[in-house]
């Protein structure tokens, strides 16, 4: 998908397999074999030409997709933050602040929000009127499942978030659904429920045309300029990640979706979509709203980018 509209910030890097093709071309052994044109080198020559042709045609063939996006993103940040291990991206802006990271580790030894997690645990474990509990709605009793959310549901044609699944559970058990975006009960419940998946590798699937469409819709929003301040998520969280805005370090998009909810100052519970709301307001744009299609698609796109990284549930932020 070409991002050429003036309202969209450009995707960084060369795009598609062109980068890989160029790297292959600069390999001395391959160059030597091309030069000598022996039988074996002829096949490698043909392969190389084929790669180049594919690279050029890549966008048209639709081969540039989520997997390619993620690889490009990782390469982009490897250059931006040399030496930072991939796993560290779950710490967000703290990768650029060793002192901040140290303070964070100290606070997380005894986090100040354990009371809120306890509230969430009460809600999770209290049986419904029919005797069932939330654990009955999820595989493995809700352990190590959150890393697969959001997912694309072919039947409904929509992205399903973990909050959607919580409400589906309530609905099928004859209970009233929780309001999206509320601190209690939804916020504290999902804060606790996510601890059951702490450390799980994010594993979002985008493996159908419908899923790809939602992924691309989320990606569009990420790159689109919005609000009176004309900002796109990508402008800060891609191109200026690690830089300082006034006194705060901007977090990179890689790893961003792994570590929610955050507890600002140890007390203010903020989910990922809560952060979307705050960011859009700060850019002086009207927020789309909790559980909106736009935000669910954005969450789908963002979480996919963090595939392979460990989920970090309920973290402290200052």
């Amino acid at each position: 998908m070409k991002l050429t509209s003036p309202n969209l910030i450009a995707w960084p890097g060369v795009g598609c397999m062109q980068d890989l093709a160029r790297k292959a071309l600069s390999c001395p052994r391959l160059q030597a074999s091309i030069g000598s044109r022996t039988t074996t080198s002829l096949s490698s020559f043909v392969v190389l030409r084929l790669m180049l042709a594919v690279a050029v045609l890549c966008p048209a063939l639709g081969l540039a997709g989520p997997a390619d996006d993620r690889v490009q993103l990782v390469h982009f940040f490897e250059k931006r933050f040399p030496g930072v291990p991939l796993e560290d991206y779950v710490y967000g802006a703290l990768i650029a602040s060793p002192g901040g990271r140290h303070q964070y580790e100290q606070i997380m030894e005894f986090p100040p929000f354990l009371g809120d997690l306890e509230k969430g645990k009460q809600i999770w474990e209290t049986p419904f009127h029919n005797g069932a509990t939330f654990a009955n709605c999820f595989a493995m009793g809700g352990r190590n499942v959150v890393g697969t959310y959001p997912y694309f549901d072919n039947a409904s044609g929509k992205v399903v978030t973990f909050e959607n699944a919580v409400n589906a559970c309530l609905r099928t058990n004859g209970e009233a659904e929780f309001a999206y975006g509320d601190r209690e009960p939804m916020g504290v419940l999902t804060a606790y429920a996510r601890t059951l998946s702490d450390g799980m590798r994010i594993n979002i699937r985008v493996d159908s045309p419908g899923a790809v469409a939602k992924y691309e819709a989320g990606k569009q929003l990420f790159f689109r300029r919005i609000g009176q301040l004309n900002a796109a998520c990508a402008g800060c969280h891609l191109h200026n990640a690690g830089k300082i805005m006034r006194m705060e370090i901007i977090s990179p998009a890689l790893g961003q979706a792994t570590h929610w909810p955050i507890f600002r100052g140890g007390e203010e519970l903020m989910t990922l979509q809560g952060r979307f709301k705050r960011c859009m307001e700060q850019m002086r744009a009207v927020p789309y709203g909790f559980d909106s299609e736009e935000w669910n698609n954005l969450e789908y796109f963002l979480t996919y980018l963090s595939n392979g990284l460990p989920l970090k549930s309920a973290v402290f932020r200052k």
Binding site: P6, I9, A10, Q228, L229, N230, G235, C236
Partner: peptide, 18 residues
């Protein structure tokens, strides 16, 4: 600022009446 740099993150203080 987009006139000089279409990729800028600087807001258009006049054009958007900030």
């Amino acid at each position: 600022p987009m006139a000089r740099n279409p990729q800028t993150v600087m807001p258009p203080f006049g054009k958007h009446k900030v």
